[in-house]
Design a protein around this nucleic acid. Structure first.
Lengths: 189, 189
DNA sequence: AGTTTGTGGCTAACAGCATTAGCCACTCTC
DNA sequence: GAGAGTGGCTAATGCTGTTAGCCACAAACT
Protein backbone atom coordinates (compact mmCIF):
# COMPACT_ATOMS: atom_id res chain seq x y z
CA UNK A 1 0.00 0.00 0.00
CA UNK A 2 1.31 3.42 -0.88
CA UNK A 3 1.93 5.51 2.19
CA UNK A 4 -0.52 8.31 2.72
CA UNK A 5 1.97 10.61 4.40
CA UNK A 6 -0.15 11.33 7.43
CA UNK A 7 0.91 12.73 10.77
CA UNK A 8 -0.90 13.97 13.87
CA UNK A 9 -1.21 17.47 12.46
CA UNK A 10 -2.82 16.44 9.18
CA UNK A 11 -5.23 14.10 10.94
CA UNK A 12 -6.15 16.90 13.34
CA UNK A 13 -6.65 19.32 10.48
CA UNK A 14 -8.91 16.87 8.65
CA UNK A 15 -10.88 16.26 11.84
CA UNK A 16 -11.23 19.97 12.48
CA UNK A 17 -12.50 20.61 8.98
CA UNK A 18 -14.99 17.81 9.29
CA UNK A 19 -16.13 19.08 12.68
CA UNK A 20 -16.74 22.50 11.15
CA UNK A 21 -18.78 20.98 8.36
CA UNK A 22 -20.86 18.51 10.35
CA UNK A 23 -20.78 19.84 13.86
CA UNK A 24 -18.56 18.37 16.53
CA UNK A 25 -21.11 15.67 17.24
CA UNK A 26 -20.96 14.53 13.65
CA UNK A 27 -17.25 13.91 13.86
CA UNK A 28 -16.27 10.25 13.67
CA UNK A 29 -13.09 8.31 13.14
CA UNK A 30 -14.59 6.66 10.09
CA UNK A 31 -15.32 9.94 8.35
CA UNK A 32 -11.88 11.34 9.08
CA UNK A 33 -10.32 8.19 7.66
CA UNK A 34 -12.49 8.33 4.58
CA UNK A 35 -11.61 11.94 3.98
CA UNK A 36 -7.93 11.06 4.21
CA UNK A 37 -8.28 8.08 1.90
CA UNK A 38 -7.35 5.61 4.58
CA UNK A 39 -9.02 2.91 6.68
CA UNK A 40 -10.15 3.78 10.18
CA UNK A 41 -7.60 1.81 12.21
CA UNK A 42 -4.75 3.55 10.44
CA UNK A 43 -5.60 6.77 12.27
CA UNK A 44 -4.61 5.17 15.54
CA UNK A 45 -0.99 5.29 14.41
CA UNK A 46 -1.16 9.07 14.62
CA UNK A 47 -3.81 9.90 17.14
CA UNK A 48 -4.88 8.20 20.33
CA UNK A 49 -8.56 7.76 19.54
CA UNK A 50 -11.48 10.10 19.15
CA UNK A 51 -11.07 11.79 22.54
CA UNK A 52 -7.46 12.60 21.77
CA UNK A 53 -8.37 13.88 18.31
CA UNK A 54 -11.03 16.13 19.81
CA UNK A 55 -8.54 17.48 22.29
CA UNK A 56 -6.04 18.19 19.53
CA UNK A 57 -8.74 20.06 17.64
CA UNK A 58 -9.35 22.08 20.80
CA UNK A 59 -5.69 23.04 20.97
CA UNK A 60 -5.71 23.97 17.29
CA UNK A 61 -8.80 26.09 17.83
CA UNK A 62 -7.41 27.96 20.82
CA UNK A 63 -4.18 28.60 18.95
CA UNK A 64 -5.87 29.82 15.78
CA UNK A 65 -8.29 32.01 17.68
CA UNK A 66 -5.48 33.46 19.73
CA UNK A 67 -3.62 34.30 16.53
CA UNK A 68 -6.72 35.84 15.00
CA UNK A 69 -7.20 38.08 18.03
CA UNK A 70 -3.58 39.09 18.04
CA UNK A 71 -3.66 39.95 14.36
CA UNK A 72 -6.93 41.83 14.64
CA UNK A 73 -5.85 44.04 17.53
CA UNK A 74 -2.38 44.70 16.20
CA UNK A 75 -1.87 48.45 15.98
CA UNK A 76 -5.29 49.34 17.32
CA UNK A 77 -6.33 50.60 20.71
CA UNK A 78 -9.37 51.21 22.88
CA UNK A 79 -12.61 51.19 20.96
CA UNK A 80 -10.98 50.14 17.71
CA UNK A 81 -9.15 47.26 19.32
CA UNK A 82 -12.27 46.12 21.12
CA UNK A 83 -14.34 46.18 17.96
CA UNK A 84 -11.66 44.39 15.98
CA UNK A 85 -11.20 41.71 18.60
CA UNK A 86 -14.92 41.17 18.90
CA UNK A 87 -15.40 40.85 15.17
CA UNK A 88 -12.44 38.52 14.87
CA UNK A 89 -13.81 36.26 17.52
CA UNK A 90 -17.29 36.24 16.07
CA UNK A 91 -15.98 35.48 12.61
CA UNK A 92 -13.79 32.68 13.83
CA UNK A 93 -16.65 30.97 15.61
CA UNK A 94 -18.89 31.36 12.59
CA UNK A 95 -16.30 29.96 10.22
CA UNK A 96 -15.09 27.24 12.55
CA UNK A 97 -17.97 26.23 14.80
CA UNK A 98 -16.77 22.65 15.19
CA UNK A 99 -13.26 23.64 16.22
CA UNK A 100 -14.61 26.21 18.65
CA UNK A 101 -17.00 23.66 20.15
CA UNK A 102 -14.06 21.33 20.67
CA UNK A 103 -12.34 24.11 22.56
CA UNK A 104 -15.32 24.51 24.83
CA UNK A 105 -15.57 20.82 25.51
CA UNK A 106 -11.93 20.57 26.52
CA UNK A 107 -11.42 19.63 30.14
CA UNK A 108 -7.96 19.58 31.55
CA UNK A 109 -6.28 19.22 34.86
CA UNK A 110 -2.68 19.23 33.67
CA UNK A 111 -1.21 22.76 33.68
CA UNK A 112 1.33 21.73 31.02
CA UNK A 113 -1.40 20.78 28.63
CA UNK A 114 -0.88 22.74 25.40
CA UNK A 115 -4.54 23.66 25.53
CA UNK A 116 -3.96 25.58 28.73
CA UNK A 117 -1.04 27.39 27.14
CA UNK A 118 -3.02 28.28 24.04
CA UNK A 119 -6.08 29.49 25.89
CA UNK A 120 -4.00 31.54 28.26
CA UNK A 121 -2.46 33.27 25.27
CA UNK A 122 -5.95 33.82 23.92
CA UNK A 123 -7.14 35.38 27.15
CA UNK A 124 -4.06 37.57 27.26
CA UNK A 125 -5.05 39.04 23.93
CA UNK A 126 -8.46 39.95 25.27
CA UNK A 127 -6.93 41.34 28.45
CA UNK A 128 -4.63 43.50 26.35
CA UNK A 129 -7.65 45.09 24.74
CA UNK A 130 -9.04 45.96 28.14
CA UNK A 131 -5.81 47.51 29.26
CA UNK A 132 -6.55 50.43 26.98
CA UNK A 133 -9.47 51.34 29.21
CA UNK A 134 -7.22 51.75 32.23
CA UNK A 135 -9.45 50.03 34.74
CA UNK A 136 -8.58 49.51 38.36
CA UNK A 137 -6.43 46.42 38.70
CA UNK A 138 -8.98 44.46 40.70
CA UNK A 139 -11.71 45.20 38.19
CA UNK A 140 -9.79 43.90 35.22
CA UNK A 141 -10.58 40.27 35.84
CA UNK A 142 -14.25 41.00 36.20
CA UNK A 143 -14.25 43.04 33.02
CA UNK A 144 -12.37 40.31 31.22
CA UNK A 145 -14.85 37.68 32.28
CA UNK A 146 -17.72 39.93 31.31
CA UNK A 147 -16.29 40.65 27.89
CA UNK A 148 -15.51 37.02 27.31
CA UNK A 149 -18.97 35.95 28.43
CA UNK A 150 -20.59 38.38 26.04
CA UNK A 151 -18.52 37.40 23.04
CA UNK A 152 -18.70 33.70 23.77
CA UNK A 153 -22.40 33.85 24.48
CA UNK A 154 -23.26 35.86 21.41
CA UNK A 155 -21.17 33.75 19.07
CA UNK A 156 -22.41 30.41 20.36
CA UNK A 157 -26.03 31.52 20.30
CA UNK A 158 -25.55 32.77 16.77
CA UNK A 159 -24.04 29.57 15.40
CA UNK A 160 -26.71 27.58 17.23
CA UNK A 161 -29.30 29.59 15.33
CA UNK A 162 -30.83 30.63 18.61
CA UNK A 163 -31.65 34.19 17.68
CA UNK A 164 -35.24 34.29 16.58
CA UNK A 165 -36.79 37.42 15.06
CA UNK A 166 -35.42 38.70 11.85
CA UNK A 167 -33.81 41.79 13.27
CA UNK A 168 -30.35 42.00 11.83
CA UNK A 169 -27.84 40.13 13.92
CA UNK A 170 -24.98 42.31 12.71
CA UNK A 171 -26.75 45.34 14.13
CA UNK A 172 -27.22 43.63 17.46
CA UNK A 173 -23.57 42.72 17.60
CA UNK A 174 -22.49 46.26 16.83
CA UNK A 175 -24.89 47.51 19.49
CA UNK A 176 -23.44 45.11 22.01
CA UNK A 177 -19.89 46.20 21.28
CA UNK A 178 -20.82 49.84 21.63
CA UNK A 179 -22.58 48.97 24.86
CA UNK A 180 -19.56 47.37 26.43
CA UNK A 181 -17.24 50.07 25.11
CA UNK A 182 -19.32 52.80 26.71
CA UNK A 183 -19.68 50.81 29.89
CA UNK A 184 -15.95 50.34 30.17
CA UNK A 185 -15.36 54.04 29.60
CA UNK A 186 -17.84 54.89 32.31
CA UNK A 187 -16.34 52.48 34.82
CA UNK A 188 -14.87 54.39 37.70
CA UNK A 189 -11.12 54.31 37.93
CA UNK B 1 -43.62 -8.75 34.33
CA UNK B 2 -45.00 -6.10 36.65
CA UNK B 3 -45.65 -2.86 34.84
CA UNK B 4 -43.27 -0.08 35.65
CA UNK B 5 -45.79 2.69 35.14
CA UNK B 6 -43.67 4.73 32.81
CA UNK B 7 -44.77 7.46 30.46
CA UNK B 8 -42.98 10.00 28.28
CA UNK B 9 -42.76 12.49 31.12
CA UNK B 10 -41.12 10.12 33.59
CA UNK B 11 -38.66 8.88 30.99
CA UNK B 12 -37.81 12.47 30.13
CA UNK B 13 -37.35 13.34 33.79
CA UNK B 14 -35.02 10.39 34.31
CA UNK B 15 -33.06 11.33 31.21
CA UNK B 16 -32.80 14.94 32.33
CA UNK B 17 -31.52 13.95 35.75
CA UNK B 18 -28.96 11.65 34.21
CA UNK B 19 -27.86 14.34 31.77
CA UNK B 20 -27.33 16.71 34.70
CA UNK B 21 -25.25 14.13 36.51
CA UNK B 22 -23.11 12.89 33.64
CA UNK B 23 -23.24 15.66 31.11
CA UNK B 24 -25.43 15.52 28.05
CA UNK B 25 -22.84 13.48 26.20
CA UNK B 26 -22.94 10.86 28.90
CA UNK B 27 -26.64 10.31 28.41
CA UNK B 28 -27.52 6.93 26.94
CA UNK B 29 -30.66 4.89 26.49
CA UNK B 30 -29.09 2.08 28.46
CA UNK B 31 -28.44 4.22 31.52
CA UNK B 32 -31.91 5.72 31.45
CA UNK B 33 -33.41 2.24 31.27
CA UNK B 34 -31.24 1.01 34.11
CA UNK B 35 -32.22 3.95 36.28
CA UNK B 36 -35.87 3.19 35.64
CA UNK B 37 -35.45 -0.52 36.34
CA UNK B 38 -36.33 -1.52 32.83
CA UNK B 39 -34.61 -2.94 29.74
CA UNK B 40 -33.49 -0.56 27.05
CA UNK B 41 -36.01 -1.45 24.32
CA UNK B 42 -38.90 -0.73 26.66
CA UNK B 43 -38.11 2.96 26.49
CA UNK B 44 -39.07 3.01 22.84
CA UNK B 45 -42.69 2.54 23.85
CA UNK B 46 -42.60 6.01 25.40
CA UNK B 47 -39.96 7.93 23.55
CA UNK B 48 -38.85 7.85 19.95
CA UNK B 49 -35.18 7.19 20.49
CA UNK B 50 -32.30 9.17 21.92
CA UNK B 51 -32.77 12.19 19.66
CA UNK B 52 -36.40 12.49 20.68
CA UNK B 53 -35.51 12.08 24.34
CA UNK B 54 -32.92 14.83 24.05
CA UNK B 55 -35.45 17.10 22.43
CA UNK B 56 -37.95 16.43 25.19
CA UNK B 57 -35.30 17.30 27.74
CA UNK B 58 -34.75 20.54 25.84
CA UNK B 59 -38.44 21.39 26.10
CA UNK B 60 -38.42 20.55 29.80
CA UNK B 61 -35.39 22.76 30.31
CA UNK B 62 -36.84 25.75 28.49
CA UNK B 63 -40.07 25.38 30.43
CA UNK B 64 -38.40 25.08 33.81
CA UNK B 65 -36.04 27.94 33.13
CA UNK B 66 -38.91 30.11 31.96
CA UNK B 67 -40.77 29.34 35.17
CA UNK B 68 -37.70 30.10 37.26
CA UNK B 69 -37.28 33.47 35.58
CA UNK B 70 -40.93 34.30 36.01
CA UNK B 71 -40.85 33.40 39.68
CA UNK B 72 -37.65 35.28 40.31
CA UNK B 73 -38.77 38.51 38.74
CA UNK B 74 -42.27 38.41 40.18
CA UNK B 75 -42.89 41.63 42.09
CA UNK B 76 -39.49 43.12 41.33
CA UNK B 77 -38.48 45.80 38.89
CA UNK B 78 -35.47 47.40 37.28
CA UNK B 79 -32.22 46.57 38.98
CA UNK B 80 -33.81 44.13 41.38
CA UNK B 81 -35.57 42.28 38.62
CA UNK B 82 -32.43 42.15 36.53
CA UNK B 83 -30.34 40.81 39.39
CA UNK B 84 -32.97 38.26 40.31
CA UNK B 85 -33.37 37.05 36.75
CA UNK B 86 -29.65 36.80 36.26
CA UNK B 87 -29.14 34.84 39.45
CA UNK B 88 -32.05 32.55 38.64
CA UNK B 89 -30.62 31.77 35.25
CA UNK B 90 -27.13 31.19 36.56
CA UNK B 91 -28.40 28.91 39.28
CA UNK B 92 -30.54 26.92 36.90
CA UNK B 93 -27.64 26.27 34.55
CA UNK B 94 -25.40 25.30 37.46
CA UNK B 95 -27.95 22.92 38.91
CA UNK B 96 -29.09 21.52 35.57
CA UNK B 97 -26.20 21.72 33.14
CA UNK B 98 -27.32 18.68 31.16
CA UNK B 99 -30.86 19.94 30.67
CA UNK B 100 -29.58 23.35 29.67
CA UNK B 101 -27.13 21.83 27.21
CA UNK B 102 -30.00 19.92 25.64
CA UNK B 103 -31.82 23.22 25.21
CA UNK B 104 -28.85 24.68 23.40
CA UNK B 105 -28.51 21.71 21.12
CA UNK B 106 -32.16 21.86 20.08
CA UNK B 107 -32.64 22.65 16.42
CA UNK B 108 -36.10 23.17 15.12
CA UNK B 109 -37.77 24.31 11.96
CA UNK B 110 -41.36 23.72 13.00
CA UNK B 111 -42.94 26.81 14.61
CA UNK B 112 -45.44 24.63 16.48
CA UNK B 113 -42.69 22.76 18.20
CA UNK B 114 -43.24 23.02 21.96
CA UNK B 115 -39.61 23.99 22.30
CA UNK B 116 -40.26 27.14 20.33
CA UNK B 117 -43.21 27.95 22.54
CA UNK B 118 -41.24 27.38 25.73
CA UNK B 119 -38.22 29.36 24.66
CA UNK B 120 -40.38 32.22 23.46
CA UNK B 121 -41.93 32.36 26.90
CA UNK B 122 -38.46 32.33 28.39
CA UNK B 123 -37.31 35.21 26.22
CA UNK B 124 -40.45 37.13 27.10
CA UNK B 125 -39.49 36.95 30.75
CA UNK B 126 -36.12 38.46 29.99
CA UNK B 127 -37.70 41.09 27.79
CA UNK B 128 -40.05 42.01 30.63
CA UNK B 129 -37.05 42.76 32.80
CA UNK B 130 -35.69 45.11 30.19
CA UNK B 131 -38.98 46.93 29.86
CA UNK B 132 -38.31 48.50 33.24
CA UNK B 133 -35.41 50.39 31.69
CA UNK B 134 -37.69 52.08 29.16
CA UNK B 135 -35.43 51.74 26.17
CA UNK B 136 -36.31 52.91 22.71
CA UNK B 137 -38.39 50.26 20.98
CA UNK B 138 -35.79 49.52 18.33
CA UNK B 139 -33.06 49.07 20.92
CA UNK B 140 -34.93 46.52 22.96
CA UNK B 141 -34.06 43.59 20.75
CA UNK B 142 -30.40 44.51 20.79
CA UNK B 143 -30.44 44.89 24.54
CA UNK B 144 -32.24 41.57 24.89
CA UNK B 145 -29.69 39.79 22.76
CA UNK B 146 -26.88 41.43 24.68
CA UNK B 147 -28.32 40.46 28.04
CA UNK B 148 -28.99 36.95 26.90
CA UNK B 149 -25.51 36.58 25.44
CA UNK B 150 -23.95 37.70 28.68
CA UNK B 151 -25.97 35.41 30.88
CA UNK B 152 -25.71 32.46 28.55
CA UNK B 153 -22.01 33.01 28.02
CA UNK B 154 -21.18 33.41 31.67
CA UNK B 155 -23.21 30.43 32.77
CA UNK B 156 -21.90 28.07 30.11
CA UNK B 157 -18.31 29.12 30.69
CA UNK B 158 -18.80 28.62 34.40
CA UNK B 159 -20.21 25.11 34.16
CA UNK B 160 -17.51 24.22 31.63
CA UNK B 161 -14.95 25.22 34.26
CA UNK B 162 -13.48 27.68 31.82
CA UNK B 163 -12.73 30.45 34.26
CA UNK B 164 -9.15 30.12 35.32
CA UNK B 165 -7.65 32.26 38.10
CA UNK B 166 -9.04 31.90 41.52
CA UNK B 167 -10.72 35.24 41.68
CA UNK B 168 -14.20 34.68 43.05
CA UNK B 169 -16.67 33.91 40.30
CA UNK B 170 -19.57 35.24 42.35
CA UNK B 171 -17.90 38.62 42.49
CA UNK B 172 -17.40 38.62 38.74
CA UNK B 173 -21.04 37.79 38.19
CA UNK B 174 -22.19 40.57 40.47
CA UNK B 175 -19.84 42.96 38.70
CA UNK B 176 -21.25 41.92 35.34
CA UNK B 177 -24.82 42.46 36.48
CA UNK B 178 -23.98 45.90 37.84
CA UNK B 179 -22.23 46.63 34.57
CA UNK B 180 -25.21 45.85 32.44
CA UNK B 181 -27.58 47.60 34.82
CA UNK B 182 -25.60 50.80 34.65
CA UNK B 183 -25.21 50.50 30.93
CA UNK B 184 -28.93 50.11 30.43
CA UNK B 185 -29.62 53.13 32.61
CA UNK B 186 -27.17 55.19 30.60
CA UNK B 187 -28.62 54.14 27.27
CA UNK B 188 -30.18 57.11 25.57
CA UNK B 189 -33.93 57.04 25.38
C1' DA C 1 -67.37 -13.37 35.78
C1' DG C 2 -65.49 -14.23 31.24
C1' DT C 3 -63.83 -12.50 27.03
C1' DT C 4 -61.42 -9.41 24.50
C1' DT C 5 -58.35 -5.97 23.19
C1' DG C 6 -54.58 -2.90 23.63
C1' DT C 7 -50.53 -1.69 25.92
C1' DG C 8 -46.06 -2.06 27.88
C1' DG C 9 -42.95 -4.97 29.27
C1' DC C 10 -39.49 -8.63 27.36
C1' DT C 11 -35.79 -11.41 24.36
C1' DA C 12 -33.36 -11.77 20.13
C1' DA C 13 -31.11 -9.83 16.45
C1' DC C 14 -28.76 -6.31 13.71
C1' DA C 15 -26.14 -2.26 12.41
C1' DG C 16 -22.75 1.33 13.20
C1' DC C 17 -19.00 3.04 15.67
C1' DA C 18 -14.52 2.97 18.41
C1' DT C 19 -10.97 0.33 19.45
C1' DT C 20 -7.33 -3.48 19.64
C1' DA C 21 -4.43 -7.27 17.82
C1' DG C 22 -1.62 -8.83 14.70
C1' DC C 23 0.22 -8.96 9.93
C1' DC C 24 2.91 -7.32 6.13
C1' DA C 25 5.01 -4.15 2.78
C1' DC C 26 7.35 -0.19 2.06
C1' DT C 27 11.01 3.03 3.11
C1' DC C 28 14.88 4.67 5.21
C1' DT C 29 19.47 3.76 7.10
C1' DC C 30 23.85 1.67 7.34
C1' DG D 1 21.72 -4.92 -0.40
C1' DA D 2 20.32 -6.24 4.32
C1' DG D 3 17.84 -4.94 8.30
C1' DA D 4 14.73 -2.40 11.22
C1' DG D 5 11.01 0.38 12.07
C1' DT D 6 6.94 2.59 10.60
C1' DG D 7 2.42 3.00 8.72
C1' DG D 8 -0.70 1.01 6.21
C1' DC D 9 -4.08 -3.16 6.23
C1' DT D 10 -7.68 -7.10 7.68
C1' DA D 11 -10.05 -9.35 11.26
C1' DA D 12 -12.27 -9.39 15.44
C1' DT D 13 -14.46 -7.48 19.81
C1' DG D 14 -17.52 -4.70 22.53
C1' DC D 15 -20.73 -1.20 23.25
C1' DT D 16 -24.79 1.53 21.90
C1' DG D 17 -29.01 2.54 19.39
C1' DT D 18 -32.65 0.57 17.18
C1' DT D 19 -36.19 -2.78 15.24
C1' DA D 20 -39.02 -7.01 15.18
C1' DG D 21 -41.81 -9.87 17.22
C1' DC D 22 -43.65 -12.22 21.41
C1' DC D 23 -46.42 -12.46 25.53
C1' DA D 24 -48.62 -11.19 29.92
C1' DC D 25 -51.15 -8.07 32.28
C1' DA D 26 -54.89 -4.61 32.92
C1' DA D 27 -58.80 -2.33 31.71
C1' DA D 28 -63.25 -2.41 29.25
C1' DC D 29 -67.26 -4.57 27.51
C1' DT D 30 -70.83 -8.09 27.40
Amino acid sequence: MARAGLDPASVTEAGATLADELGLDGLSMGLVAERLGVKTPSLYKHVDGLADLTHRIAVLSATELGDALRDATQGRSDTDALAAAAQAMRRYVKEHPGRYAAGNRARTTDPHDPFVVASTRLLDSLAAVLRGYRLEADQEIHALRTLRSMLHGFATLEVADSFQMDTDVDDSFAWMIAFIDQGLRATVR
